[in-house]
Amino acid sequence: MSTPDNFLGKALGELGPFTGLYALDIVDGVIDDFAPAGREDLVLRFARPAPLLVVEGLLGMDERYAAGIGQAVPALLGESRNSERAEENLVRLIRQLVVEKQEGPGPDLVSWMLHYAPDGQHAAVERHIRLLLLQVVAEATRRIGWALHDRLPGPGETRAAADRRGLPVTGHGPVGDRQALARLIADSAVERLLFRLPGMHLSIPAAGVRLAPWGGVDCCPELLPAAFPPVRVPYTGNEEVPWLPAPIFTTVPPRSR
């Protein structure tokens, strides 16, 4: 029987080879929102929202959670003055999610955590959901911010593609812990952005980028204003665009025990 110390690892072990593609699908949606503009702040519009959306999808959240989670998590990571209310809202939404997944498991991390957790360990499941939302999002945001800071040239600068903060983009093996999940999300996001928007550069010198605390993980860039050749994103207008793509990271809901 699993213990509170290993059921998260077992749940993460259910993430299949399509997890990276799922992350890319969400990242593409975030890029689509600002690609036609030709300029954007890559922290506020990319490094922060992309990881949060990916983690929400992996946890099996739907659009009913979008507004609440989208306000609570950034407020807690950014040390908002409303952090107490944000924490209360986050706890309430996590408990609601756990109850829903108990009643109707799906192909998502919460359902698999409930499957592997010992009976009666719902509080431990809720704690791990909170850590996934806060720690993974904070670490992925930090990695994306520093990778773009280090790889994008500022005005009149040239910048090698090497990353000076130890964030190499390599192949990923199994996602065994929160750190590995954060790396997968960050690496996927950075490479997709640079692939889709070539010619991107910072609008200010990299040395002039100010730092801000984010989630207590370390400082990360506060703003990364960037410019790039605008890219037109085709829309047919005939289909309803979902809040998040359908899950493909695990193949089936948990089996009955």
Rank of each mutant, 00 (worst) to 15 (best):
M1F: 12
M1C: 09
S2L: 07
T3D: 15
F7W: 08
F7A: 09
L8S: 10
K10Q: 07
A11M: 01
E14M: 03
L21W: 11
D25M: 11
A35S: 02
A35W: 04
G38W: 02
G38A: 03
G38H: 12
D41S: 08
D41N: 14
L42C: 02
V43R: 12
V43A: 08
L44K: 14
L44Q: 14
R48Q: 15
P49W: 04
L52Y: 13
L53D: 09
E56S: 12
L58A: 03
D62Y: 04
E63G: 06
G68H: 08
G70Q: 05
A75Q: 06
G78V: 02
S80P: 02
S83I: 09
E87K: 09
E88D: 05
R92K: 12
I94V: 15
R95S: 14
E100G: 02
G104F: 12
P105Y: 06
P107I: 03
P107E: 08
D108T: 01
L109T: 02
M113D: 04
D119W: 02
Q121Y: 03
A123T: 15
A123R: 06
L131V: 10
L133Q: 05
A138L: 12
A140G: 09
G145C: 13
A147C: 05
L152H: 13
L152Y: 06
P153Q: 03
P153A: 00
A162I: 13
R164T: 10
L167D: 11
G173K: 02
V175W: 09
Q179E: 14
A180Y: 06
L181C: 00
L184W: 10
A189I: 01
G199K: 01
M200W: 00
L202M: 00
S203H: 04
P205M: 04
A206H: 10
A207V: 10
L211V: 12
P213N: 13
W214K: 11
G216N: 06
G216E: 09
L223Y: 11
A226F: 10
F228A: 00
V231T: 13
R232G: 07
V233L: 02
Y235Q: 13
G237F: 04
E240Y: 14
P242I: 06
P245Q: 12
A246R: 04
T251G: 06
R255M: 06
